[in-house]
Design a protein around this nucleic acid. Structure first.
Lengths: 352, 352
DNA sequence: TTTAGCACTTACGCTATTTGAGTGCTAAGA
DNA sequence: TCTTAGCACTCAAATAGCGTAAGTGCTAAA
């Protein structure tokens, strides 16, 4: 039965596969030989198309929903399409305009830009979008301070040299004097400022508690606060836009699955690992190419953006495997450039 | 045909209505005379039940899905049930235990307690829960300060005498000196501290800009930041828990409606007005008794909690009209007491 | 290699038909 | 006067049957 799998497709087969993917992503219905024959620029009969389709099926690029149905692309078919058949037609001018427009406003924080980007990208695509802040591998602590707010309330503020700011208010125990606090703040600033986060986390385990212990009886509670704020600065790099769009394209409409997905969206570690930044370009992961099982019936278009010395971030769009890949790839590609430009601009404005 | 609407129900009718509501909220299926006759403690034939049901229907307490179906409660039926037929059987000991347990931890901010409450309440009910922070009608500004973070970044912090803290970081324009900033902060503290929020909002329109204008060329940008932080302190009183539970009980499964609802959840003003605190007790609003059209096919169980001089807050559960009212009323009642106790405890701990 | 022709398959939409749970009404019994 | 057995009737939901449209694979001729 297996006549041996041929590795290369003829030109005509490519045209047909391309047409099948396009048609199917547009209409969502399996595409048959007759309709395809009418639609194709080349003039061949439906019977010929049928023969080619059979060949494509044998090679695993298309499949049938049932014995006598038309063909739909398989995951391998989508992969082939994305790798060889997308035409990089220009991104709609209106879309670029829109991106530039939305990003042209003035923002107070990086976070605002990144969050707005997630929303905009989801709006443009009607899917769910993720954005990650640029990660400076060597981000260092540049300052820590406590601001008394009265009534034993204190706000802890932590600043990274990347510009990240994290803060948290808490209540100090009655037993703690403001002198003690100040000493500890000075200690932290002396010992930890200038160090990268990873190192701080290490020191926070043994070295620092010992030193702080000289000034406080119970340093644990306080250092816990510090650790939490540090954690916040390090991990809150992640925004989701268009969560609700998931309702439109989710394959499985039962609430339990949706909940699992939404929970996944809220665990930044997991999502970050799924997005795993590859090379510098736009990358497409289709179906089970995505490492997370919850997402194996979806597709993910990710792109990195480069902000020079300020590190590199990511954007991504999550949608159905049946998505208009050409458009998505173009859009993510354009977006990463616009975003990089905006952020470079932001930092330039800040630094001088 | 209308023999005249009788206003009072006989004992037997009450028993039957109660049974219909219970059965229907449990099973979701219209309840028929035969099944009911078997289930009821009183011994009457199904024919008798049918007669009584006809009477109940005439009075508007139950209705049919179609000519030959069993009966389901009408909104009026639910209302009667809630007003006269719920039995305040004790809230499950396990539930109270759970509430006390979850609230027994130590929290750094009121917000954490209130947020955790929303989550817990939604978990207990499997519905969506809302919590509002206690509102001190006369909350006043007790302090405003700016903390320079380096690189022209500044954090604005605002403290209310109720203990609320709001903050925001922003970037100051190059043209602004730190002297200018300090002057303005002093001005704000001199002029506005001690005033209730409403008054501040008024002054912020005319009086303050004029005064600030003496020290800055462009006070608008800065005052906008101040206004935004103020707004945050005033309006972020509101938490939602179990948003996703809506997927389980929403009447209408089309994405558009869900989106509208979720958007409603995010506009605190609208929700707050829907919840409109009534008397001190637990209150039930059924279907179109809720003023907001988006919610007119749901029911809302609200309860207020009293934190003495620190004001009064609210909790609420949003679920389907077909909900187990007895349990919900009991649960919300217990929760409001536990929450009030916890908050009183929190404030006592803070004040002295 | 291509294509016309043909037998075959399958989903989908229609139209009965059956079944089961339930109703209202009537007339007899308590 | 209230209760109840009995009966004819209704309707939703499930089931079965049937025609249609769109599609396929295969064969044989061009």
């Amino acid at each position: 039965m297996l006549k041996g799998v041929i590795k290369t497709l003829t030109e005509r087969q490519k045209v047909i596969l391309q047409a099948i993917v396009r048609e199917y992503t547009e209409t969502g219905a399996a595409v048959g030989s007759k309709a395809l024959a009418a639609r194709l620029p080349i003039h061949v009969s439906s019977a010929t198309i049928r023969n080619e389709m059979a060949s494509l099926e044998e090679q695993g690029y298309v499949q049938k929903e049932h014995t006598s149905s038309g063909r739909i692309p398989s995951l391998a078919g989508y992969r082939y399409y994305v790798d060889h058949l997308v035409n990089n037609d220009a991104v709609a001018h209106a879309d670029i305009q829109l991106i530039q427009n939305e990003l042209s406003g003035s923002f107070n924080k990086i976070d605002e830009i990144i969050e707005e980007s997630a929303n905009l990208l989801s709006e443009l695509t009607s899917y769910t979008a993720f954005t990650l802040k640029p990660e400076q591998a060597d981000a260092r602590l540049s300052g820590f301070r406590l601001v008394p707010l009265g009534n034993r309330q204190v706000m802890a503020i932590l600043v990274m040299d990347s510009g990240e700011v994290a803060n948290q208010t808490f209540t100090i125990p009655r037993s703690m004097s403001s002198d003690q606090l100040e000493t500890v703040v000075r200690l932290i600033n002396d010992q930890l400022v200038g160090l990268p986060i990873t190192e701080i986390v290490d020191k926070l385990r043994v070295e620092i508690p010992a030193k702080v212990g000289q000034y406080m009886q119970t340093p644990e509670g306080f250092l816990q606060i510090f650790g939490r704020v540090l954690d916040q600065a390090a991990t809150e790099r992640f925004f989701v836009g268009g969560r609700l769009n998931l309702l439109n394209f989710s394959v499985n409409h039962n609430p339990q699955d949706l909940k699992s997905l939404y929970q996944l969206f809220d665990t930044s570690d997991d999502i970050a690992s799924v997005l795993s930044p590859p090379d510098n370009k736009v990358q497409v992961k289709i179906g089970n190419e995505i490492t997370n099982d919850l997402l194996k019936h979806y597709s993910l278009v990710t792109g990195t953006y480069d902000v020079g010395s300020h590190g590199r971030g990511m954007i991504a769009v999550l949608g159905p495997t049946r998505m208009p890949y050409s458009r998505m790839i173009g859009l993510v590609g354009a977006f990463r450039q616009e975003l990089a430009a905006k952020l470079l601009d932001y930092y330039r404005n800040l630094d001088d």
